[in-house]
Nucleic acid binder design. Structure first.
Length: 412
RNA sequence: GCGAUCGUAGCUCAGUUGGUUAGAGCGCCGGUUUGUGGUACCGGAGGUCGGGGGUUCAAGACCCCUCGAUCGCCCCA
């Protein structure tokens, strides 16, 4: 192996073959389903001014300090490779005057970048599909968005073993009261908490709720639930979401421990979770982010969205074989090579995927053709110096006949 | 940032308690057989054993460092 070849950057992937087919299947299915739900397609920049991502998060968080791919351009401006879609879309909503389209349903997909240690289903350049409804305060928006996610997973054939976990974080008033009660409760049990969770108590107390530490889990079980702190409006909103899901036939499971780390999240939070992907069990996640667009200097714009990692979905989808060609043309005599090319051009122009085999040992060309698993094979040989096509009987006789008819009029 | 496991041919892997010129299967290339065919056989190309240093008469194997991969922790917008 050449030892002076540059290596691929850590956490990047070269996706090929069956993996690439599974990836494409996920994207194609998403594109089909989003049209059913009337989501409009958007193409967004891969990088933005750093502020677009850092401002909603708060400047000091780990996420901003350590997890973003930020760099200065030649003008000295700090730019960042997008670590998520939502912030860029929110920026565009403001700067491009998309208020006029509200409520706006948007779908997009593409690469995202986070500076993290790679592990199963986690990469530094990874890919997501993404759906948002901007400027919609009604719980019906949450329901539709979730229904779309549910249908997507079904059409991908991976809904089995995946459950929708649902929670509410309430409105800001509910959320603050709950947060205060949690801090109070965890502070009283501080000595029993794991070291990590003692840290979280200062930094991000809600995160103690999804600690993986056994001791923490026991303490969390008795923590005050959000339900005790919901305002009447917040309770009503959540009820509307759950009854809407029931009406739409979307099964869900309450997970009162499910939280979001950032303050702009309100009301609905959800994750579709599987037990088949090790530590990275979330297959699709999202929530309502009524506060986000304001933090970027826009008008109050209640919105809700989700994103899903294409790699993780592709892993669940499993290997997908690349389809064989319609036709393989085998040139057994090199003198017939040009005629083979002519036939191939005609076949392709009439919409048949076609490969030509005209190199290597002539004896082994037919075997190569068989291995491609085509619908039919045409062998081109020379009789008295004249190229002659002959047709090989495979299972698909009607298709063979179609090709035979197509080639009959062709002369060398 | 931390931890565990692992790096031998294009791919999947063998390689005994350290012991001559490092192996297999698949794939690739060529030949023989078959001759309406996916078979079988023969041959060939391809490896400074991830890299560097050390121990030893002798290292793919043992020790240290380093790079990379995988899985997990932290984090998760």
């Amino acid at each position: 192996m050449a030892n002076n070849t540059p290596q691929a950057v850590r956490g990047t992937q070269d996706i090929f073959g069956a993996d690439a087919e599974a990836f494409a299947f996920v994207v194609e299915t998403f594109e089909r389903v989003r049209k059913l739900y009337r989501f409009r397609r958007a193409e967004m920049p891969v990088f933005e001014k750093t502020e677009v991502f850092s401002r909603p998060l708060g400047e000091t968080t780990d996420v901003v300090a350590k997890e973003m791919y930020s760099f200065e351009d030649r003008g000295g401006e700090s730019l960042t490779l997008r670590p998520e879609f939502t912030a860029g879309i929110a920026r565009a909503f403001i700067t491009d005057g998309w208020q006029q389209h509200a409520p706006l349903r948007l779908a997009t997909h593409g690469p995202l970048f986070r500076y993290e240690r790679p592990q199963k289903g986690r990469y530094r350049q990874f890919h997501q599909i993404n759906a948002e409804i901007l400027g919609a305060a009604e719980p019906q928006a949450d329901v539709e968005l979730l229904a779309m996610a549910d249908q997507l997973l079904k059409e991908l054939g991976i809904a089995d073993g995946v459950t929708l976990q649902l929670n509410t974080l309430g409105d800001p008033e509910s959320r603050e009261a709950w947060r205060a009660a949690l801090v109070h409760y965890f502070a009283a049990h501080k000595d029993a908490l794991s070291e990590d969770s003692q840290d979280r108590l200062d930094r991000n107390p809600l995160r103690i709720l999804d600690s993986k530490d056994r001791g923490d889990i026991a303490i969390v079980a008795n923590a005050p639930p959000i339900d005790d702190f919901l305002t009447a409006e917040a309770r009503e909103f959540f009820c509307a979401v759950t009854s809407g899901l029931d009406a739409a036939g979307v099964p869900w499971q309450r997970n009162a421990q499910l939280v979001r780390g950032f303050d702009y999240y309100r009301h609905t939070a959800f994750e579709f979770v599987t037990d088949r992907l090790g530590a990275q069990g979330t297959v699709l996640g999202g929530g309502r982010y009524d506060g986000l667009i304001e933090t970027l200097g826009g008008p109050h714009t209640p919105s809700v969205g989700w994103a899903a990692g294409i790699e993780r979905l592709a892993m669940l989808v499993g290997d997908r074989a690349e389809a064989g060609p319609d036709l393989v043309i085998v040139v057994e005599d090199d003198a017939a090579a040009t005629f083979g090319l002519k036939l191939m051009a005609i076949a392709r122009h009439t919409g048949h995927s076609t490969e030509l085999i005209a190199s290597g040992s002539p004896r082994k060309r037919f075997d190569k053709a068989k291995k491609l698993d085509p619908r039919t094979i045409v062998v081109v040989d020379c009789h008295d110096g004249v190229p002659v096509p002959s047709f090989r009987k495979l299972a698909d006789e009607s298709f063979e006949l179609e090709i035979r008819t197509l080639f009959e009029a062709v002369t060398p």
